[in-house]
């Protein structure tokens, strides 16, 4: 057998770029594999769309009985709801990997990832996209398109810039919350996403404008579990013009990211696999 002298290597060489490229490559591969399970794919998207439509119906029913809550009208609340869907959808699309942590820990599957010369998180998140986010993103866009004209949005350069800052920051908050919450599986093997369900539940509070809640809870949603940055602060920036809170949203995003990363690191250090 002759020596094959082809020395080409696929992809970029610099490490950081290469990791990014590999992440994209893994996602692509999984997307193709996933598309072959059509029923599963459609069910996933359908289920998510159903969930969000029901949420919208709920909002409609509520506002059919009361014209405004704490100064927020139906259309303003719908705008907020649409923003939440967009932000959470964005985070969920690239955050699917977090949900596999629990199972991977319980079944000892992190062994496999630990044998590869790539950061474990990159491999986990490269394990799949959150397809259900398609429904959220689509529906959210539709809601924004319908609700937008009914709300007197203060359009300015500032508003646009604020949105550009606030939406990715909000996505970061939710993404980090899911990572941190799912990492709890390192401490209580078998908890299987319970904490993540809890946090997702808490993020449902972001469906309503913040002033609905008592001071203390509103403070928690801004300072401790900053889910108010998912929808309320960006929505308020649209309705009333950008304010300090929306400009500070990157702090919330990066802070959450840092906390989540620390939790993840601490969890991974505890990983012991399973007895074979």
């Amino acid at each position: 057998m002759g020596v094959d002298a082809d020395r080409r290597i696929h992809g970029p060489r610099p490490y950081a770029l290469r990791v990014l490229w590999l992440y994209g490559r893994m996602l692509g591969q999984h997307a193709l594999a996933r598309l072959s399970y059509e029923t599963d794919f459609l069910l996933t998207i359908g289920a998510s769309a159903l969930t969000q439509v029901l949420g919208l119906i709920f909002l409609g029913v509520v506002f059919s009985r009361i014209p405004s809550v704490r100064g927020w009208t139906f259309w303003q609340a719908a705008l907020l709801y649409g923003l939440l869907l967009e932000v959470r959808g964005l985070a969920a699309a690239f955050g699917e990997g977090a949900w596999s942590i629990g199972g991977a820990v319980a079944r000892g599957e992190l062994d496999r990832l630990l044998l590869r010369p790539l950061p474990v998180l990159v491999q986990l998140y490269g394990g799949g996209l959150g397809w259900s986010a398609i429904a959220d993103l689509g529906l959210g866009a539709a809601i924004l398109a319908v609700a937008g004209p009914h709300v007197a949005i203060v359009w300015s350069f500032g508003t646009v810039a604020a949105l550009c800052v606030a939406l990715p920051s909000g996505a970061m908050v939710y993404w980090s919350a899911m990572l941190a919450a799912n990492s709890i599986a390192f401490w209580t093997v078998g908890a299987r996403g319970t904490v993540a369900f809890l946090l997702h539940g808490v993020s449902e509070l972001a469906k309503f404008p913040l002033p609905v809640y008592p001071r203390l809870l509103a403070g928690v949603l801004t300072w401790c579990l900053p889910f108010a940055f998912l929808s309320f602060y960006p929505a308020r920036a649209l309705v009333a013009g950008p304010d300090l809170a929306v400009w500070l949203s990157p702090l919330a995003g990066l802070g959450s990211l840092l906390c989540a990363w620390l939790v993840w690191r601490a969890g991974l250090a505890r990983y012991e696999g399973t007895g074979s």
Binding site: M1, V3, D4, A5, D6, R7, R8, I9, H10, G11, R13, R18, L22, R25, M26, Q29, R116, P117, L118
Partner: peptide, 18 residues
């Protein structure tokens, strides 16, 4: 995918497959 993760040159990879 493993070939790309480990940056294995194309020629060596083909040889390995053989």
């Amino acid at each position: 995918l493993l070939r790309d993760i480990y940056a294995v040159p194309q020629g060596r990879y083909r040889q390995h497959l053989r």
